[in-house]
């Protein structure tokens, strides 16, 4: 059995990717099982989805904690302590990372010893489809890695995406971009050993007083500790030559992360700006540009 785990951000298409892969495997004659794990159900928040593929009956259910293959659809998740996309990866496992960097650079940057495959599927998506939704493309990469035939994969992309994309032209673009990614990756010999489990100890839970054991939070809020700046695919960049200091963007930012400098010009708090681009939409003077975020290039994203 092969167990795959997709890591993405809400809105990027991790769930649909796991489904396209599941359907592709099913069309290729395998037993398959796929499902998403919704967390906060927020655009931009980390999300995982899973696909199991097997010739035999699948006698497992629930979260995959020991994957053979991990598909990282958003590079920033590699340094996210909550997402931890590499956790539990089996020896000999494979990691795909959506990044403009080479496998070698990626291995060094994130200190990964296992087999890394990279492709900038965000760029491919922007170039060929015009938006950064990666479902078909991530599924393509995964399908190719696990050795699913092209016909089965094409059938799966068309079947799954036609249910959610009604625009014929957009559907064709998605399929083309997905097939481009499928062919850009080399099939891989997957040689993961069945996992050697660490062995969990079964314990007895002790009684604790209600002050401890009632589901109440006794601490003050910790939301500010959770930075959302790495959710961006695009960052808003201000052009002060054009800006009239009308303050519309300041009022419209849903997260209150546009501040005003001493000269009365707005600037964003990039640690928390999620890249929703509402400010870009709302600016009457068109003074805000969207620039593709390159989190992996130091100094540009991870501040």
């Amino acid at each position: 059995m092969l167990r795959l785990r997709f890591h993405g951000r809400g809105g990027q298409g991790a769930k649909v990717a796991s489904r396209v892969l599941g359907t592709a495997a099913f069309l290729d004659g395998y037993n398959a099982q796929d499902f998403p794990l919704y967390g906060a159900e927020k655009r931009g928040a980390p999300i995982t989805a899973f696909t199991r593929i097997s010739r035999e009956n699948i006698m497992e259910r629930g979260v995959i904690s020991e994957p053979d293959i991990v598909i990282v659809m958003d590079e920033t998740l590699l340094s996210d302590p909550q997402a931890m996309p590499l956790s539990g990866l089996k020896k000999g496992g494979i990691i795909f990372v959506n990044t403009p960097n080479s496998p070698l650079e990626t291995k060094e940057r994130y200190n990964i010893a296992d087999h890394v495959i990279t492709l900038d599927i965000t760029k491919i998506s922007l170039d060929m489809i015009g938006n950064p939704v990666l479902s078909g493309l991530a599924a393509a990469v995964a399908s190719r890695i696990v050795g699913i035939g092209e016909d089965a994969f094409r059938g799966a992309v068309e079947k799954e995406l036609s249910g959610i994309i009604s625009d014929r032209e957009l559907l064709v673009k998605n399929t083309e971009a997905a097939l481009y990614c499928y062919n850009a990756i080399m099939p891989v010999q997957i040689k993961t050993a069945e996992s050697i489990r660490e062995g969990e100890n079964v314990i007895t839970i002790p009684f604790e007083i209600a002050l401890v054991s009632s589901p109440a939070i006794n601490a003050t809020g910790n939301t500010p500790l959770r930075r959302t700046g790495n959710w961006r695919v695009f960052r808003p960049v201000w052009d002060y030559e054009v800006c009239t200091r009308c303050m519309t963007c300041v009022a419209r930012c849903p997260d209150g992360c546009i501040h005003v400098n001493e000269d009365g010009y707005p600037y964003a708090d990039y640690d928390n700006c999620k890249g929703c681009l509402i400010c870009v939409e709302e600016c009457p003077a068109k003074a805000i540009n969207k620039v593709r975020e390159m989190h992996s290039r130091s100094g540009e994203g991870d501040r």
Binding site: R19, G22, F26, N31, A32, Q33, D34, F35, P36, L37, Y38, I58, R61, G62
Partner: peptide
């Protein structure tokens, strides 16, 4: 919930 409701199988 989840284990069947959101899980796809043949």
């Amino acid at each position: 919930g989840f284990y069947l409701s959101f899980t796809r199988e043949n």
